[in-house]
Simulated scan of single mutants.
Amino acid sequence: MGSLCPCGVGDYYGCCGRYHRGVGGAPTAEVLMRSRYAAFVRGDVGYLLRTWHPRTRPVRLELDPGLRWTGLEVLGTTDGSAFHTAGTVAFRASYRGGSLHERSRFERFDGAWVYVDGEFLD
């Protein structure tokens, strides 16, 4: 078995790593959110941009190399399954020195789940 996936679910290569490598697409909004968190942890800017909705995607993305993500907690989901075209995922992502609490919105675009935007929560 390889290394633990940053999203906390299983082995990286059998979990989010397969999506990062382009082997299939995330089946739900929550799985996409987890894979995007893992991409932030691993510094995979290409994956983050590929999974961002074209209408809200930035031209480029620069990650803070000093930021160390330390854990992910999914707090709740609304829709976002194989039967939906949109969904939200509320989560808390911890980093050294603090945490980020967000409700992210996802939509299907060309058949694949993509990140649209997020709302920071207290």
Score class of each variant (00 low, 15 high):
V41P: 00
G43V: 06
D44V: 12
D44P: 00
V45S: 02
V45T: 14
G46M: 01
Y47W: 12
L48A: 09
L48H: 09
L49G: 07
L49T: 07
R50G: 11
R50L: 10
T51C: 04
H53V: 10
H53I: 10
P54C: 13
T56Y: 06
R57H: 08
R57Y: 11
R57A: 15
R57N: 06
R57K: 15
P58K: 07
V59K: 12
L61R: 03
L63C: 05
D64W: 03
D64R: 05
P65N: 02
G66N: 13
G66W: 02
G66C: 04
L67F: 01
R68F: 01
W69N: 03
T70N: 05
L72N: 01
E73A: 14
L75E: 13
G76N: 12
G76H: 04
G76R: 09
T78N: 12
T78L: 15
T78C: 13
D79K: 15
H84G: 09
H84V: 00
G87H: 01
V89L: 00
F91M: 06
F91I: 01
R92V: 04
R92A: 02
R92E: 11
A93Q: 09
G97C: 10
G98Y: 04
L100K: 08
R103A: 02
F106Y: 12
E107Q: 13
R108H: 09
